[in-house]
Simulated scan of single mutants.
Amino acid sequence: MSWVTAKLSQVATIERNSIAPDAITSGTTYVGLEHISSGGASLSPVQVEAGELSSNKFAFDANTILFGKLRPYLAKVVAPSVSGVCSTDILPIRPHGNLDKKFLLHFLLSPKQVAYVANRATGANLPRLSPKELAAMEIPLPPLEEQRRIAGILNATDALRRRRREVLALLDTLPGAIFAEMFGDVHETYTLKEAGTDFRYGTSSKSQDHGLPVLRIPNVVGGDVDLSEIKTVPLSAKEEARFALKDGDILLVRTNGNQAYVGRSAVFKREKVAAHEMADRTWSFASYLIRARLKEKELLPDFIQGFLSSAAGRKQLLASSKTSAGQFNINTEALGAIRVPKVAVPAQAAFVDRVAEIKNHRQQVLDHLSELENLFASLQTRAFAGEL
């Protein structure tokens, strides 16, 4: 099927209605790039007070699309349901009457268009897409009813993806809730330093296309080790011994721009990597992670990891984190000072068994989400090629 095409400037207006700081009143909705997730998966705007924002912003409303022009490869593009002001690194786009807003949203988020804008961004360290380049983008323009039909199909599939992500988020809260239920009234404690034999920062060697598998911040997700993207680093024999991971080692995120991510943890298990193509190699960990190695037989690593994910554990981790240059950090000394409930091994094992059930269910949901992601990508490609 062949459709006419048009430049974005012919079917939409890129609005840059500047609002001065003194014109922004208390209760105004504000959207910065930090409030839009990569891929447009979510929008979390904030309410600001008068005088809180110090520079000019752009106005937007529920009939616009917000397009993040800074680092456009992150695809920070969303359709807001409210009015407000946004960072000037975000361009509000108002579709004309012959262009459906949701059709345009899905088009801008399609992999082909994300690659298109990424290739046309300028600036080495902070690449930006100019409004002129965005306006010149060619967009397919089927009849309006066809646009709405396509958008409806993509909306339905996207809604399924979002529900799976919501389920994953809820499942990730369960281990902490179970820990509180089982051990919330335990008052006898010990420090992690007393429980551990080694706390160590990872390798600062840069990843290359050869070497040993290395776990990084993105691999510590949902209280588990995610193997979807594994990098490799070349290490000497001495470094290999120093940074080698053993079964039961706990990995913790020690630095991040988002304080909520500091202290995020997972337990390394050989069985977890057994099916990976690099399973027979020594696995290591990167410098933004801390490896905590516990005394054998006295403590179960999954029990400690469960505590660190609980509300009580998170409270201590956040209190121990320090900020510097916009980054939150926790060091090995602060980590070792965290106090853990003293619980008998059988009770630890009972908790670990319950969490294992949750993780099995989480993996099933994750597998289903992966299938939906593949389906959605296929539908996107077909949709804008006129094959849907």
Rank of each mutant, 00 (worst) to 15 (best):
R242D: 00
G211D: 05
A244M: 05
H210I: 09
L215E: 02
K246F: 10
D224H: 11
V221G: 01
L227G: 12
G223F: 01
G222W: 02
P234D: 08
S205N: 06
I217V: 15
P213G: 10
H210L: 14
L235T: 04
K246P: 03
V225T: 13
L227N: 11
D209L: 02
I217R: 02
V233I: 14
K238I: 14
I230V: 15
P234Q: 08
S236L: 07
P213R: 08
R242S: 01
A244L: 04
S228W: 10
K206Q: 12
L227I: 14
A237G: 09
E240A: 13
I230E: 02
G202L: 06
L215Y: 03
L212F: 13
K238S: 15
V225A: 01
D209M: 02
A237N: 14
D226Y: 04
T203E: 04
D247N: 15
G211H: 09
R216Y: 05
G223H: 03
N219P: 02
G202M: 04
V233T: 12
V221T: 14
S236W: 06
L235K: 09
S204L: 05
S236D: 11
S207P: 10
K238N: 14
P234I: 01
V233Y: 11
D224T: 15
A244W: 03
G202R: 05
L215V: 14
E240L: 01
P234Y: 06
L212C: 11
P218I: 06
G222F: 03
G222I: 06
S204M: 07
F243G: 04
V225G: 03
D209V: 01
V214P: 13
P213L: 10
R216I: 11
L235Q: 04
S228C: 13
H210R: 15
D247V: 08
L215R: 05
H210G: 08
R216G: 12
T203Y: 03
S228Y: 09
E239P: 03
V221L: 08
V214H: 11
L245N: 00
V225L: 11
V214Q: 09
V214M: 12
E240V: 01
R216M: 12
G211R: 05
E239A: 07
S205V: 09
S228N: 15
A237R: 14
A241Q: 11
V233M: 07
A241V: 04
H210N: 12
V221N: 06
V214A: 13
V221M: 04
E239K: 06
R216F: 11
V220A: 01
I217M: 05
T232P: 00
K246G: 10
K246T: 01
L227T: 15
